[in-house]
Amino acid sequence: MNLSIFRPVLRPFKPQIVRPSSVFQRIAQCPQARIPAYTSPFSSTSRMQKRSKKGGGQDPRITSIRYHLSHPLTPRPLHFSRNRHLRHWTIHRAWMLFLRKRRWAEERDLERQYMSMRAACEHLRLLDQNGNRVSEQEAGGQGPDAGRLGMRGREVGRLYRSAMLKRGVWGSVPVEYARVQTDFPGREGWNHAWTRN
């Protein structure tokens, strides 16, 4: 039975160290040093099987699961000397700084996108059907209601109104599109034959 999966990867398996004192004790207990202190039972049947025949025996798999649940191999907590702690602290601050800069850069990216979308929408809102810019009074869409019409009626900001309808936006992401990035593109990079229905 391979239970190595329960063992944390970072912690190497350490064989049990035999203390010299216990060895001496064992030798003192049995004067003939050749005879081992622990003798295996004569029967080759393992204890677990023997027990289960009597009735009420436990599955060895459950026993091992219980053992490993109650003996988690947790690494010991970190204890640092002063210099090591200071070194650790410095590196940690640098790492935090790096993360913060990365987050900041990502947010600036999104901000740039947001601002350009905002400018585009504002442009569309004030756009005539002939492509001319109209004044704020003539255009619609004031306030929270994007579909509101202005003095010039429907001919101003048609594209803006249809964009703000958000028709088909909710629940529109197809499973074929939603794929996690990979290091290399797939064998067929783009399925040109794909249609929604």
Binding site: Q113, Y114, C121, E122, G143, A146, M164, V173
Partner: peptide, 12 residues
């Protein structure tokens, strides 16, 4: 970026 584009709501 996609979510931002899809759900953008414009206010003048």
């Amino acid at each position: 970026a996609d979510l931002l584009t899809l759900t953008y709501q414009h206010y003048p």
